[in-house]
Computed example of a mutant assay.
Amino acid sequence: MANGSRQAAWEFFGAELKRRREDADLTQVELGSRVFVSGGYIGQFEQAIRKPQLDVAHRIDGVLQTDGIFERLCRKLIDDKRYAEYFAGVVELERQAAQICEFEPTVVPGLLQTPAYTSALTLATHPFAADEFIEERVTARVERAQILSGPTRPLYWVVVHETVLRVPVGGPDVTARALDHMADLADARRVVLQALPFSAGAPANNGSLRLMEFEDAPPVAYTETSFSGTLVDDPAMVKRAERAYDLLRGAALSPEASLALVRSAAEDFRRCTSTT
């Protein structure tokens, strides 16, 4: 489903929610209190500014006695074939998050990638893929990154391992431009960026880690390996993930020193390009 038609479908979801709520003679605040979110969130669902999580959609169906229609719509809309099945729901949570904290040990985080960097990564894992497949992945990632410039953009904090700054992806020029882009977003205050240097030793977390916080819902953690991802909402496990992230953040360089390291690494790749 194209991005435009997907947005239109969410607008239908919102209009239908408003109609069913008014038919039940409930205000936004009253419905929100019954499904454990604020009335303001119900208003944002109805305006298609934010999208409800599946459990919220399920509770809305229960309160409005709508026979599962909102949960089914929600499941259909987050079933995006451009993403792995285990990641599609995470994309929707990103769009709803008030804060995202991410650690990446090997590659530039998806929300900070350039199209050329994404294309090179996709080709590395799908060496026989058709151009259309690669273009689809690039477009999907560009769309994801739009949350950093939208009206409800989250506070975004990223820690990257120094490995991210040293491994060429798509060649020195592509990597240099990707690092420049990451640094430019930090300069523009779209992201708080820290680098975990090699000198810090073993990291407190070995894999990719993402923490997401919401205005009116409990936080979740997401971990990922090469072929699978796990969304964690158990409070005790989320707390463990938060402690690991605090350790990563504490061991990392300051944002100022990190930015200098990223800029320096980009220059190193540019020098490689000029000597070849």
Rank of each mutant, 00 (worst) to 15 (best):
T125I: 11
D80H: 05
R240N: 07
P219E: 13
G171N: 10
T223Q: 14
S274G: 05
A252S: 06
R137Y: 02
L121A: 06
F103K: 02
G201W: 11
C74V: 10
T223I: 10
A266W: 12
F128C: 03
A204H: 06
Y83A: 07
A48Y: 06
P218Y: 14
H58R: 13
D180V: 10
E94F: 08
T230R: 12
A257P: 02
R210V: 15
G150I: 02
A130R: 08
F87S: 10
Y245F: 15
E104T: 10
D23M: 05
S228C: 07
P151T: 05
S228R: 11
P109C: 13
R95L: 13
I134E: 01
I134N: 08
A145S: 09
L64P: 00
P219H: 09
G250R: 06
V56Y: 01
C74D: 05
P218N: 13
V90A: 06
A176Y: 12
P172F: 13
T66V: 02
R153W: 03
P115S: 14
R20A: 11
E11R: 11
L231P: 02
A145T: 04
S149R: 10
S264C: 00
L247V: 02
L231Y: 02
P203V: 09
A120T: 03
T125Y: 01
L209M: 10
D25P: 02
G170R: 09
F133Q: 07
V142K: 11
V138S: 06
R34M: 12
V232F: 04
P168G: 03
F128N: 03
N206M: 09
F45W: 07
G39T: 04
Q65R: 14
P219W: 07
R19A: 15
R210F: 03
L248C: 08
R6M: 12
G62S: 04
Q99K: 15
K76H: 07
T122S: 11
V174A: 10
L165Q: 05
G207R: 09
E256W: 01
Q99C: 12
A217S: 15
E162H: 04
Q194V: 12
G14H: 07
D55R: 04
D131C: 01
S254Y: 06
P154D: 00
Q113S: 04
K81N: 08
A8W: 12
I134T: 11
W10I: 10
A188D: 14
T27Y: 11
R82T: 15
L248D: 00
L179Y: 14
P127Y: 08
L211W: 07
C74M: 03
I69G: 01
D268R: 13
G201K: 14
S258R: 10
V192F: 06
E224Y: 12
D268P: 01
L93R: 14
V91N: 08
Q99V: 04
K81W: 09
R177H: 13
S199H: 00
A266I: 03
T225F: 05
A244N: 05
M237H: 04
T139G: 00
F103R: 01
T163D: 14
V160L: 13
A183E: 07
G68C: 00
L261S: 01
R75S: 07
A15M: 07
S5E: 15
Q99L: 13
D187Q: 12
